[in-house]
C-alpha cells in the first residue's frame, strides 16, 4: 500500500531533467521533497500527476502501474495534484472551483464529506463562496486550491510549492491546513517545497533532490539535522 516512483526518468524535449528518481509515499504519510531551483521538483510532481510523460522507469500505486494513464484518469483514481501557483479557475467562483474538484471524486463517494470539515475550520471559505477566485488574496487562493483538492477525495496528494508567494504568517496557516488534511483524509502527501525548513519540520520522511537525482533520504528530522542540508538549504553557515 503506497505510491511508488521507481527509477523515474523524464524531462522536456531534448533536456532530461530527472535521472532515475525513486521514492515512496505511504498512506497517511507526509513526505517532503526539498531541493534548490532547477533540481527537478516541479517536473517530478507534474510527471506523477500525468502532465508530463514518463521516459523510463515506472509509477505505481498499490503495486499497479499508472505510468501510461491520462492525467484525468489519475485524478479520478485519487492521485490529486495542487499545481504551483495554485491555478484556480480565475473566473469561476470559490464554490464552482471546489465543485470542479468534486468531479474527480465521482464514483468514490460515501462516508463524510471531506470538504465540510475544512469549511468549518476555515469560515473564510464560506464567506467567499460566491466570489470570483481571481479576486482573492494569495493566501485565500491557496486555501481554496487545497480545499478543491480535498473535494477530489485524494488517496495521494501532490503539493507543488504551496507556500510560493505567501507571507510567513500565511505560510504557517497553509501548513496548518496541510496537517489537517492529512488527519482528516488519511491521504499520503508528497510535499515539494523551497521553504525547506518548514517542510522538513512538518514531514515524516524527506528526500533531497539535486540536479535530478535523490542525493539524500531518511526521516525528516535526520535530513534536517544533516550538515549538507543545513548548509545548502537552511542557510546555516558551516
Amino acid at each position: 500500500m503506497s505510491l511508488e516512483v521507481d527509477r523515474l526518468e523524464c524531462g522536456y524535449d531534448r533536456a532530461p531533467i530527472l535521472h532515475g528518481v525513486s521514492l515512496r509515499v505511504g498512506p497517511g504519510e507526509l513526505v517532503a521533497v526539498v531541493g534548490s531551483n532547477g533540481a527537478g521538483k516541479t517536473t517530478l510532481v507534474r510527471t506523477i500527476a500525468g502532465l508530463l510523460t514518463v521516459r523510463s522507469g515506472d509509477l505505481r500505486v498499490d503495486g499497479s502501474s499508472f505510468a501510461r494513464t491520462s492525467a484525468a484518469r489519475r485524478a479520478r483514481s485519487g492521485i490529486v495534484m495542487v499545481p504551483e501557483g495554485r491555478r484556480l479557475f480565475p473566473q469561476l467562483t470559490v464554490g464552482e472551483n471546489i465543485e470542479m474538484g468534486r468531479r474527480a471524486a465521482r464514483g468514490r463517494t460515501g462516508g463524510e464529506d471531506p470538504v465540510a470539515a475544512l469549511l468549518d475550520a476555515f469560515p473564510i471559505l464560506t464567506e467567499r463562496w460566491d466570489q470570483q477566485a481571481n479576486l482573492l488574496s494569495g493566501g485565500e487562493q491557496q486555501m481554496v486550491a487545497l480545499t478543491r483538492a480535498v473535494a477530489a477525495r485524494p488517496r495521494y496528494l501532490l503539493l507543488d510549492e504551496p507556500s510560493l508567494g505567501l507571507s510567513p504568517l500565511k505560510t504557517l496557516e497553509v501548513f496548518r491546513l496541510i496537517e489537517m488534511i492529512r488527519e482528516r483524509t488519511g491521504a499520503g502527501i508528497l510535499l515539494v517545497e523551497q521553504m525547506a525548513d518548514q517542510a522538513l519540520q512538518a514531514a515524516d520522511r524527506a528526500y533531497v533532490l539535486e540536479l535530478g537525482r535523490v542525493s539524500m533520504e531518511g526521516p525528516a528530522a535526520e535530513v534536517r539535522a544533516s550538515d549538507e542540508v543545513r548548509r545548502a538549504y537552511l542557510g546555516v553557515a558551516g
Binding site: 500527476a49 500525468g50 502532465l51 491520462s70 492525467a71 484525468a72 484518469r73 485524478a75 479520478r76 490529486v80 495534484m81 499545481p83 491555478r87 479557475f89 480565475p90 473566473q91 469561476l92 464552482e96 465543485e99 470542479m100 474538484g101 468531479r103 474527480a104 471524486a105 465521482r106 478543491r148 477530489a152
Partner: peptide, 22 residues
Amino acid sequence: SAGLVMRAVSQDPETTSLMGVS
C-alpha cells in the same frame, strides 16, 4: 454541470484535467 466544465476548460484545460475531466 456540463456548463461549469465547459467554462473551466475555457479558462485552464490543464488544471481541468487535474480535476479528472479530459
